[in-house]
Design a protein around this nucleic acid. Sequence first.
DNA 1: TCAAAAGTGTTAAGTTTACACCCATGA
DNA 2: TCATGGGTGTAAACTTAACACTTTTGA
Lengths: 225, 225
Amino acid sequence: MNTYYSSNPKFHVAIDCIIFGFDKDGLSLLLLQRNFEPAKGEWSLMGGFVQEGESADDAAKRVLFELTGLNKVYMEQVGAFGAVERDPGERVISIAYYALVNINEYDHALVRKHNASWVKINELPPLIFDHPQMVAQARELMQQKASCAPIGFNLLPKLFTLSQLQSLYEAIYGETIDKRNFRKDVAKMGYIEKTDKIDKSGSKRGAALYKFNERVYRKAPKFKL
Amino acid sequence: MNTYYSSNPKFHVAIDCIIFGFDKDGLSLLLLQRNFEPAKGEWSLMGGFVQEGESADDAAKRVLFELTGLNKVYMEQVGAFGAVERDPGERVISIAYYALVNINEYDHALVRKHNASWVKINELPPLIFDHPQMVAQARELMQQKASCAPIGFNLLPKLFTLSQLQSLYEAIYGETIDKRNFRKDVAKMGYIEKTDKIDKSGSKRGAALYKFNERVYRKAPKFKL
DNA sequence: TCAAAAGTGTTAAGTTTACACCCATGA
DNA sequence: TCATGGGTGTAAACTTAACACTTTTGA
């Protein structure tokens, strides 16, 4: 055995997932009301432990999959949380990731099994450990990223109205946006394309459905909302 | 023992430090030419292992101190690097931090002992493992942060000329800045204060020395360069 | 006396913000 | 017919970018 490594301690390394969803009521997080120890009965993020032979990114994907049944979800690392007493049970270093999921497409049975539910982001219950800090950092990072990269579409259906898109960005920024200015900005991008489909569910008149054209975006990847 | 935790594997958790310095030749990193295994003889970041009873942030401070003898240095976490084979010797999960140090104030003996030296950031040698990605991420993050928070001063002496400050930001952004526009922006901030001292080392005429007044900054923390 | 860096304002271009009405439809 | 959300343009305010010459002084 290599003494250079083995003279040093080892730690449990966990993953915690901040799972964002969006619907007409705004942004929500998918949270667990823990039916297991430690901190049974309290609210927490979905988590799990990194396994041998599994990268941190893969562990995050797995943890998200275990709760939602979803693959190929947009995820980004928030950072490592390494305070000594962050988990009162035992020393655990945790790596937080946020995920953007389409709130209409997940495995409801799995979510029920984990005793998880969507909670509006402005009505979060107290969370265990340092999960509030993780959520706060994830929100900042997501907001920052969403302002300059087209990641918001991961929270919407493939086809969406401009009103939906606007209200998504209003939820992300926590402020209202002028409708005409917003639509001007969207038009400038060129890769948010109007389809010939109409959504009649949100209004009597009906609203044009748009889609994000990634091909076009890649050719001129500029984004600013 | 708690089976919830103990059924999961443990890992060595390392810290790697991207140490930025700045002088008239621009930005540099403090790098080690390793005189120890693994990867002896190759270039790497300064690193170390997180210890029992030590937070990740504290470990980063300690690792920086071990190389430079410096305390109270501005540091920010870059993120966790958790690829399975990132360290070919053994599985190690590493948390990267960047540090901004005044290149004129560090313990030269310690640096010599570690076989470390300052390397211009645009002339980096090949680095081991995933250290190139760590450096790239650290540069992006630092640039982003420096554009909207007054962290650049950590790379300068307490007293600095506006030419030094400008060339620092030119180095951070990798582009030239218009002198008059730059000085207008500095003037608008109000907390970059002219002192009555003159630096005669950089020119015959001499340039006014300025200082960053943190008190004033805190009262109206706006920064944009 | 001249080379080298310090210091100093103005204008045009571009971007951002504010703002109000008509349209189509289902109830 | 009317209430509801969908859809559209313009002008003023502000921000950003471009630009050149004078000053000081040590060598």
